[in-house]
Design a protein around this nucleic acid. Sequence first.
DNA 1: TACTACATGTAAACGGTTACATGATTGC
DNA 2: GCAATCATGTAACCGTTTACATGTAGTA
Lengths: 190, 190
Amino acid sequence: MTKDNKSFYVILAVVSLEPMSGYDIKKYIEGSVSNFWNISYGQIYPTLNRLVEIGYVTYDVEKNGNRPERKVYCITENGISTLKEWLVAPVEEGNPYGSELLLKLFFGSNISIEDNINHVIRFRNQQSVYLENLNSIRDRLEAYKEKDRNMEYQIITVRQGQIHAQSKIEWCEETINRLTEIKKYKGVEK
Amino acid sequence: MTKDNKSFYVILAVVSLEPMSGYDIKKYIEGSVSNFWNISYGQIYPTLNRLVEIGYVTYDVEKNGNRPERKVYCITENGISTLKEWLVAPVEEGNPYGSELLLKLFFGSNISIEDNINHVIRFRNQQSVYLENLNSIRDRLEAYKEKDRNMEYQIITVRQGQIHAQSKIEWCEETINRLTEIKKYKGVEK
DNA sequence: TACTACATGTAAACGGTTACATGATTGC
DNA sequence: GCAATCATGTAACCGTTTACATGTAGTA
Protein backbone atom coordinates (compact mmCIF):
# COMPACT_ATOMS: atom_id res chain seq x y z
CA MET A 1 0.00 0.00 0.00
CA THR A 2 2.96 2.24 0.69
CA LYS A 3 2.97 4.08 -2.63
CA ASP A 4 5.95 2.21 -4.07
CA ASN A 5 5.04 -1.38 -3.52
CA LYS A 6 5.83 -2.73 -6.96
CA SER A 7 4.20 -6.13 -6.53
CA PHE A 8 0.95 -4.39 -5.74
CA TYR A 9 1.01 -2.58 -9.07
CA VAL A 10 2.27 -5.57 -11.02
CA ILE A 11 -0.68 -7.63 -9.85
CA LEU A 12 -3.01 -4.78 -10.74
CA ALA A 13 -1.39 -4.46 -14.17
CA VAL A 14 -1.62 -8.18 -14.92
CA VAL A 15 -5.28 -8.30 -13.93
CA SER A 16 -5.87 -5.30 -16.20
CA LEU A 17 -4.85 -7.39 -19.22
CA GLU A 18 -7.79 -9.75 -18.72
CA PRO A 19 -9.79 -11.23 -15.82
CA MET A 20 -7.62 -13.75 -14.02
CA SER A 21 -7.31 -15.87 -10.91
CA GLY A 22 -4.40 -15.67 -8.46
CA TYR A 23 -3.09 -18.86 -9.96
CA ASP A 24 -3.27 -17.38 -13.46
CA ILE A 25 -1.43 -14.25 -12.31
CA LYS A 26 1.47 -16.37 -11.09
CA LYS A 27 1.58 -18.28 -14.37
CA TYR A 28 1.43 -15.10 -16.39
CA ILE A 29 4.27 -13.45 -14.47
CA GLU A 30 6.42 -16.57 -14.83
CA GLY A 31 5.94 -16.50 -18.58
CA SER A 32 6.54 -12.81 -19.14
CA VAL A 33 8.34 -10.52 -16.67
CA SER A 34 10.01 -13.29 -14.62
CA ASN A 35 13.18 -12.16 -16.35
CA PHE A 36 13.32 -9.17 -14.02
CA TRP A 37 10.43 -9.64 -11.60
CA ASN A 38 8.99 -12.47 -9.56
CA ILE A 39 6.28 -13.09 -7.08
CA SER A 40 4.95 -15.81 -4.78
CA TYR A 41 1.47 -16.91 -3.74
CA GLY A 42 2.22 -15.58 -0.28
CA GLN A 43 2.13 -12.14 -1.85
CA ILE A 44 -0.50 -12.63 -4.52
CA TYR A 45 -3.45 -13.80 -2.45
CA PRO A 46 -3.20 -11.26 0.38
CA THR A 47 -2.62 -8.48 -2.15
CA LEU A 48 -5.68 -9.50 -4.14
CA ASN A 49 -7.76 -9.28 -0.96
CA ARG A 50 -6.42 -5.81 -0.34
CA LEU A 51 -7.15 -4.78 -3.91
CA VAL A 52 -10.76 -5.93 -3.45
CA GLU A 53 -11.04 -3.99 -0.17
CA ILE A 54 -9.81 -0.77 -1.76
CA GLY A 55 -12.06 -1.32 -4.74
CA TYR A 56 -9.42 -1.62 -7.44
CA VAL A 57 -10.60 -5.09 -8.44
CA THR A 58 -13.73 -7.21 -8.06
CA TYR A 59 -14.07 -10.96 -8.38
CA ASP A 60 -16.48 -13.67 -9.42
CA VAL A 61 -16.31 -17.23 -8.19
CA GLU A 62 -16.15 -19.65 -11.08
CA LYS A 63 -17.42 -23.15 -10.32
CA ASN A 64 -16.12 -25.78 -12.72
CA GLY A 65 -17.94 -28.93 -11.59
CA ASN A 66 -15.61 -31.01 -9.46
CA ARG A 67 -12.47 -29.06 -10.33
CA PRO A 68 -11.32 -26.49 -7.76
CA GLU A 69 -13.17 -23.19 -7.63
CA ARG A 70 -11.52 -20.19 -9.21
CA LYS A 71 -11.81 -16.61 -8.05
CA VAL A 72 -11.60 -14.59 -11.23
CA TYR A 73 -10.50 -11.03 -10.57
CA CYS A 74 -11.42 -8.09 -12.76
CA ILE A 75 -10.03 -4.56 -12.61
CA THR A 76 -12.37 -1.63 -11.89
CA GLU A 77 -12.36 1.90 -13.35
CA ASN A 78 -10.77 3.02 -10.12
CA GLY A 79 -8.11 0.38 -10.46
CA ILE A 80 -7.33 1.39 -14.03
CA SER A 81 -6.83 5.04 -13.14
CA THR A 82 -4.56 4.13 -10.21
CA LEU A 83 -2.56 1.85 -12.48
CA LYS A 84 -2.12 4.61 -15.03
CA GLU A 85 -1.05 7.04 -12.32
CA TRP A 86 1.68 4.64 -11.31
CA LEU A 87 2.75 4.00 -14.89
CA VAL A 88 3.23 7.69 -15.68
CA ALA A 89 4.89 8.53 -12.35
CA PRO A 90 8.66 8.93 -12.84
CA VAL A 91 10.73 5.93 -11.84
CA GLU A 92 12.36 6.48 -8.47
CA GLU A 93 16.05 7.17 -8.73
CA GLY A 94 18.69 4.93 -7.27
CA ASN A 95 17.20 1.78 -8.71
CA PRO A 96 20.43 0.45 -10.25
CA TYR A 97 19.05 -2.68 -11.86
CA GLY A 98 16.16 -0.75 -13.38
CA SER A 99 13.47 -3.34 -12.73
CA GLU A 100 10.89 -0.67 -11.99
CA LEU A 101 11.50 0.91 -15.38
CA LEU A 102 11.21 -2.46 -17.10
CA LEU A 103 7.93 -3.18 -15.35
CA LYS A 104 6.48 0.15 -16.39
CA LEU A 105 7.65 -0.34 -19.98
CA PHE A 106 6.24 -3.85 -20.12
CA PHE A 107 2.81 -2.44 -19.36
CA GLY A 108 3.59 0.67 -21.36
CA SER A 109 0.73 0.32 -23.85
CA ASN A 110 -1.60 1.65 -21.12
CA ILE A 111 -0.08 5.13 -21.31
CA SER A 112 1.15 7.42 -24.07
CA ILE A 113 4.31 6.68 -26.03
CA GLU A 114 5.70 10.06 -24.94
CA ASP A 115 5.40 9.09 -21.29
CA ASN A 116 7.27 5.87 -21.98
CA ILE A 117 9.99 7.68 -23.89
CA ASN A 118 10.38 10.14 -21.02
CA HIS A 119 10.94 7.30 -18.59
CA VAL A 120 13.73 5.96 -20.75
CA ILE A 121 15.35 9.36 -21.32
CA ARG A 122 15.40 10.01 -17.59
CA PHE A 123 16.94 6.64 -16.93
CA ARG A 124 19.57 7.13 -19.61
CA ASN A 125 20.58 10.47 -18.09
CA GLN A 126 20.89 8.92 -14.66
CA GLN A 127 23.06 6.17 -16.07
CA SER A 128 25.32 8.68 -17.82
CA VAL A 129 26.00 10.49 -14.57
CA TYR A 130 26.59 7.20 -12.83
CA LEU A 131 28.95 6.02 -15.56
CA GLU A 132 31.06 9.16 -15.39
CA ASN A 133 31.34 8.63 -11.67
CA LEU A 134 32.58 5.09 -12.22
CA ASN A 135 35.02 6.29 -14.87
CA SER A 136 36.77 8.58 -12.41
CA ILE A 137 36.81 5.87 -9.74
CA ARG A 138 38.46 3.54 -12.19
CA ASP A 139 41.09 6.09 -13.12
CA ARG A 140 41.93 6.51 -9.47
CA LEU A 141 42.22 2.76 -8.91
CA GLU A 142 44.32 2.34 -12.04
CA ALA A 143 46.76 4.92 -10.70
CA TYR A 144 47.14 3.01 -7.44
CA LYS A 145 47.54 -0.32 -9.18
CA GLU A 146 51.31 -0.19 -9.31
CA LYS A 147 51.53 0.18 -5.55
CA ASP A 148 48.92 -2.39 -4.59
CA ARG A 149 48.45 -5.49 -6.72
CA ASN A 150 45.23 -6.45 -4.90
CA MET A 151 43.68 -3.36 -6.42
CA GLU A 152 42.96 -5.62 -9.41
CA TYR A 153 40.03 -7.19 -7.57
CA GLN A 154 38.54 -3.78 -6.99
CA ILE A 155 39.07 -2.82 -10.62
CA ILE A 156 37.21 -5.97 -11.69
CA THR A 157 34.07 -4.93 -9.85
CA VAL A 158 34.27 -1.36 -11.07
CA ARG A 159 34.71 -2.62 -14.64
CA GLN A 160 31.51 -4.60 -14.23
CA GLY A 161 29.74 -1.41 -13.25
CA GLN A 162 31.15 0.43 -16.26
CA ILE A 163 30.29 -2.25 -18.80
CA HIS A 164 26.90 -2.62 -17.20
CA ALA A 165 26.11 1.08 -17.31
CA GLN A 166 27.33 1.34 -20.90
CA SER A 167 25.07 -1.50 -21.99
CA LYS A 168 22.11 0.12 -20.26
CA ILE A 169 22.75 3.37 -22.10
CA GLU A 170 22.93 1.48 -25.41
CA TRP A 171 19.64 -0.21 -24.63
CA CYS A 172 18.12 3.18 -23.79
CA GLU A 173 19.15 4.59 -27.17
CA GLU A 174 17.74 1.58 -28.97
CA THR A 175 14.53 1.76 -26.96
CA ILE A 176 14.06 5.47 -27.59
CA ASN A 177 14.44 4.82 -31.32
CA ARG A 178 12.06 1.90 -31.16
CA LEU A 179 9.42 3.94 -29.38
CA THR A 180 9.74 6.97 -31.66
CA GLU A 181 9.25 4.59 -34.61
CA ILE A 182 5.98 3.35 -33.11
CA LYS A 183 4.97 6.94 -32.53
CA LYS A 184 5.50 7.76 -36.21
CA TYR A 185 3.55 4.69 -37.26
CA LYS A 186 0.69 5.50 -34.90
CA GLY A 187 0.64 9.03 -36.28
CA VAL A 188 0.17 7.77 -39.86
CA GLU A 189 -2.45 5.28 -38.76
CA LYS A 190 -4.81 7.92 -37.41
CA MET B 1 23.19 -17.27 9.96
CA THR B 2 21.16 -19.11 7.36
CA LYS B 3 24.08 -20.12 5.15
CA ASP B 4 23.40 -17.56 2.44
CA ASN B 5 22.99 -14.33 4.35
CA LYS B 6 25.27 -12.15 2.29
CA SER B 7 25.38 -9.18 4.66
CA PHE B 8 26.67 -11.49 7.35
CA TYR B 9 29.64 -12.46 5.19
CA VAL B 10 30.22 -8.95 3.88
CA ILE B 11 30.58 -7.63 7.42
CA LEU B 12 32.92 -10.50 8.23
CA ALA B 13 34.95 -9.79 5.09
CA VAL B 14 35.25 -6.07 5.79
CA VAL B 15 36.38 -6.68 9.37
CA SER B 16 38.96 -9.13 8.00
CA LEU B 17 40.67 -6.28 6.13
CA GLU B 18 41.54 -4.53 9.38
CA PRO B 19 40.03 -4.06 12.85
CA MET B 20 37.05 -1.73 12.56
CA SER B 21 34.03 -0.37 14.36
CA GLY B 22 30.45 -0.72 13.13
CA TYR B 23 30.62 2.88 12.03
CA ASP B 24 33.81 2.23 10.07
CA ILE B 25 32.23 -0.79 8.38
CA LYS B 26 29.39 1.35 7.09
CA LYS B 27 31.83 3.97 5.80
CA TYR B 28 33.99 1.36 4.15
CA ILE B 29 31.06 -0.29 2.37
CA GLU B 30 29.80 3.07 1.13
CA GLY B 31 33.20 3.81 -0.36
CA SER B 32 33.79 0.47 -2.03
CA VAL B 33 31.04 -2.04 -2.82
CA SER B 34 28.09 0.36 -2.53
CA ASN B 35 27.95 0.11 -6.30
CA PHE B 36 26.29 -3.29 -5.93
CA TRP B 37 25.79 -3.79 -2.22
CA ASN B 38 24.53 -1.72 0.68
CA ILE B 39 23.85 -2.06 4.34
CA SER B 40 22.33 -0.14 7.24
CA TYR B 41 23.22 0.19 10.91
CA GLY B 42 20.09 -1.76 11.70
CA GLN B 43 21.87 -4.74 10.17
CA ILE B 44 25.45 -4.02 11.14
CA TYR B 45 25.17 -3.76 14.90
CA PRO B 46 22.98 -6.83 15.52
CA THR B 47 25.11 -8.85 13.08
CA LEU B 48 28.30 -7.84 14.89
CA ASN B 49 26.78 -9.06 18.16
CA ARG B 50 25.95 -12.37 16.53
CA LEU B 51 29.47 -12.63 15.10
CA VAL B 52 30.87 -12.13 18.61
CA GLU B 53 28.53 -14.78 20.02
CA ILE B 54 29.59 -17.36 17.42
CA GLY B 55 33.22 -16.46 17.95
CA TYR B 56 34.01 -15.18 14.46
CA VAL B 57 35.06 -11.77 15.78
CA THR B 58 36.17 -10.23 19.09
CA TYR B 59 36.17 -6.61 20.10
CA ASP B 60 38.01 -4.07 22.22
CA VAL B 61 36.47 -0.90 23.55
CA GLU B 62 38.50 2.10 22.51
CA LYS B 63 38.13 5.13 24.77
CA ASN B 64 39.11 8.40 23.08
CA GLY B 65 38.80 10.94 25.90
CA ASN B 66 35.58 12.82 25.49
CA ARG B 67 34.80 11.51 22.01
CA PRO B 68 32.34 8.64 21.78
CA GLU B 69 33.61 5.17 22.59
CA ARG B 70 34.39 2.85 19.73
CA LYS B 71 33.99 -0.90 19.71
CA VAL B 72 36.77 -2.10 17.46
CA TYR B 73 36.05 -5.55 16.04
CA CYS B 74 38.72 -8.00 15.01
CA ILE B 75 38.28 -11.24 13.07
CA THR B 76 39.32 -14.55 14.68
CA GLU B 77 40.96 -17.60 13.10
CA ASN B 78 37.54 -19.22 13.14
CA GLY B 79 36.08 -16.22 11.37
CA ILE B 80 38.75 -16.27 8.70
CA SER B 81 38.19 -19.92 7.85
CA THR B 82 34.42 -19.41 7.65
CA LEU B 83 34.95 -16.41 5.40
CA LYS B 84 37.20 -18.42 3.09
CA GLU B 85 34.67 -21.25 2.98
CA TRP B 86 32.05 -18.79 1.79
CA LEU B 87 34.39 -17.20 -0.74
CA VAL B 88 35.25 -20.51 -2.41
CA ALA B 89 31.69 -21.88 -2.32
CA PRO B 90 30.12 -21.64 -5.78
CA VAL B 91 27.80 -18.70 -6.29
CA GLU B 92 24.19 -19.83 -6.10
CA GLU B 93 22.52 -19.93 -9.46
CA GLY B 94 19.60 -17.78 -10.39
CA ASN B 95 21.21 -14.60 -9.13
CA PRO B 96 20.58 -12.53 -12.27
CA TYR B 97 22.22 -9.31 -11.14
CA GLY B 98 25.29 -11.19 -9.98
CA SER B 99 25.89 -9.20 -6.80
CA GLU B 100 27.01 -12.30 -4.92
CA LEU B 101 29.68 -12.95 -7.52
CA LEU B 102 30.85 -9.34 -7.34
CA LEU B 103 31.08 -9.48 -3.56
CA LYS B 104 33.15 -12.65 -3.67
CA LEU B 105 35.44 -11.19 -6.32
CA PHE B 106 35.87 -7.96 -4.39
CA PHE B 107 37.27 -9.95 -1.48
CA GLY B 108 38.91 -12.39 -3.89
CA SER B 109 42.47 -11.84 -2.67
CA ASN B 110 41.63 -14.07 0.31
CA ILE B 111 41.41 -17.16 -1.86
CA SER B 112 43.34 -18.56 -4.83
CA ILE B 113 43.16 -16.98 -8.25
CA GLU B 114 41.96 -20.29 -9.67
CA ASP B 115 38.96 -20.26 -7.35
CA ASN B 116 38.11 -16.75 -8.49
CA ILE B 117 38.46 -17.69 -12.15
CA ASN B 118 36.18 -20.67 -11.60
CA HIS B 119 33.48 -18.42 -10.18
CA VAL B 120 33.61 -16.26 -13.27
CA ILE B 121 33.65 -19.19 -15.71
CA ARG B 122 30.62 -20.69 -14.03
CA PHE B 123 28.79 -17.39 -14.17
CA ARG B 124 29.65 -16.90 -17.83
CA ASN B 125 28.29 -20.33 -18.68
CA GLN B 126 25.07 -19.60 -16.85
CA GLN B 127 24.71 -16.35 -18.70
CA SER B 128 25.27 -18.05 -22.06
CA VAL B 129 22.44 -20.49 -21.42
CA TYR B 130 20.25 -17.64 -20.24
CA LEU B 131 21.08 -15.55 -23.30
CA GLU B 132 20.21 -18.35 -25.73
CA ASN B 133 16.91 -18.68 -23.94
CA LEU B 134 16.23 -14.97 -24.41
CA ASN B 135 17.26 -15.19 -28.06
CA SER B 136 14.57 -17.75 -28.79
CA ILE B 137 11.97 -15.77 -26.84
CA ARG B 138 12.80 -12.74 -28.89
CA ASP B 139 12.50 -14.63 -32.16
CA ARG B 140 9.06 -15.80 -31.09
CA LEU B 141 7.95 -12.27 -30.18
CA GLU B 142 9.35 -10.86 -33.40
CA ALA B 143 7.23 -13.35 -35.37
CA TYR B 144 4.07 -12.24 -33.57
CA LYS B 145 4.88 -8.58 -34.01
CA GLU B 146 2.94 -8.19 -37.25
CA LYS B 147 -0.24 -9.41 -35.59
CA ASP B 148 0.06 -7.50 -32.34
CA ARG B 149 1.69 -4.04 -32.31
CA ASN B 150 1.79 -3.98 -28.50
CA MET B 151 4.31 -6.80 -28.70
CA GLU B 152 6.88 -4.00 -29.09
CA TYR B 153 6.74 -3.31 -25.36
CA GLN B 154 7.50 -6.93 -24.62
CA ILE B 155 10.36 -6.90 -27.11
CA ILE B 156 11.83 -3.86 -25.37
CA THR B 157 12.14 -5.70 -22.07
CA VAL B 158 13.52 -8.82 -23.71
CA ARG B 159 16.07 -6.71 -25.55
CA GLN B 160 17.20 -5.31 -22.23
CA GLY B 161 17.77 -8.84 -21.02
CA GLN B 162 19.74 -9.72 -24.15
CA ILE B 163 21.97 -6.66 -24.08
CA HIS B 164 22.44 -7.12 -20.38
CA ALA B 165 23.45 -10.76 -20.65
CA GLN B 166 25.79 -10.00 -23.54
CA SER B 167 27.54 -7.30 -21.54
CA LYS B 168 27.93 -9.67 -18.60
CA ILE B 169 29.52 -12.27 -20.83
CA GLU B 170 31.92 -9.64 -22.19
CA TRP B 171 32.84 -8.64 -18.67
CA CYS B 172 33.41 -12.28 -17.78
CA GLU B 173 35.84 -12.71 -20.67
CA GLU B 174 37.71 -9.58 -19.69
CA THR B 175 37.81 -10.66 -16.06
CA ILE B 176 39.06 -14.15 -16.86
CA ASN B 177 41.87 -12.58 -18.91
CA ARG B 178 42.65 -10.13 -16.15
CA LEU B 179 42.86 -12.86 -13.54
CA THR B 180 44.96 -15.20 -15.67
CA GLU B 181 47.37 -12.29 -16.19
CA ILE B 182 47.73 -11.89 -12.42
CA LYS B 183 48.25 -15.61 -12.13
CA LYS B 184 51.14 -15.46 -14.61
CA TYR B 185 52.68 -12.51 -12.80
CA LYS B 186 52.39 -14.24 -9.42
CA GLY B 187 54.01 -17.31 -10.93
CA VAL B 188 57.05 -15.31 -12.05
CA GLU B 189 57.26 -13.50 -8.73
CA LYS B 190 57.75 -16.69 -6.71
C1' DT C 1 1.61 -45.69 -8.11
C1' DA C 2 3.34 -41.40 -8.08
C1' DC C 3 3.96 -37.09 -9.90
C1' DT C 4 2.31 -32.93 -12.00
C1' DA C 5 -1.12 -29.43 -12.72
C1' DC C 6 -4.92 -27.07 -10.88
C1' DA C 7 -6.38 -23.97 -7.07
C1' DT C 8 -6.56 -21.12 -2.59
C1' DG C 9 -4.83 -19.75 1.29
C1' DT C 10 -2.04 -18.87 6.07
C1' DA C 11 1.82 -18.50 9.49
C1' DA C 12 6.39 -18.06 10.49
C1' DA C 13 10.62 -16.49 9.49
C1' DC C 14 13.93 -13.69 7.15
C1' DG C 15 16.46 -9.78 5.35
C1' DG C 16 16.34 -5.16 5.23
C1' DT C 17 15.08 -0.12 5.90
C1' DT C 18 13.47 3.68 8.56
C1' DA C 19 12.77 6.22 12.43
C1' DC C 20 14.00 7.05 16.79
C1' DA C 21 17.07 7.86 21.08
C1' DT C 22 21.38 9.88 22.87
C1' DG C 23 25.14 13.02 22.94
C1' DA C 24 29.85 15.18 22.04
C1' DT C 25 32.80 17.69 18.52
C1' DT C 26 34.07 20.20 14.51
C1' DG C 27 33.52 23.46 10.88
C1' DC C 28 30.87 26.95 8.33
C1' DG D 1 23.76 29.02 15.73
C1' DC D 2 23.32 25.17 12.76
C1' DA D 3 24.65 21.41 10.24
C1' DA D 4 27.60 17.61 9.73
C1' DT D 5 30.42 13.98 11.60
C1' DC D 6 31.40 10.68 14.98
C1' DA D 7 29.34 6.71 17.42
C1' DT D 8 26.08 2.89 19.18
C1' DG D 9 22.04 0.94 19.37
C1' DT D 10 16.69 -0.55 19.25
C1' DA D 11 11.82 -1.10 17.69
C1' DA D 12 8.60 -1.03 14.30
C1' DC D 13 7.54 -1.95 9.97
C1' DC D 14 7.72 -3.76 5.15
C1' DG D 15 8.21 -6.90 1.38
C1' DT D 16 9.14 -11.44 0.39
C1' DT D 17 9.98 -16.44 0.68
C1' DT D 18 9.12 -20.88 2.49
C1' DA D 19 6.66 -24.29 4.49
C1' DC D 20 2.46 -25.95 5.46
C1' DA D 21 -2.64 -27.32 4.86
C1' DT D 22 -6.19 -29.22 1.70
C1' DG D 23 -8.03 -31.59 -2.16
C1' DT D 24 -9.18 -33.15 -7.23
C1' DA D 25 -7.91 -34.70 -11.95
C1' DG D 26 -5.08 -36.27 -15.39
C1' DT D 27 -0.93 -38.57 -16.94
C1' DA D 28 3.40 -41.33 -17.16
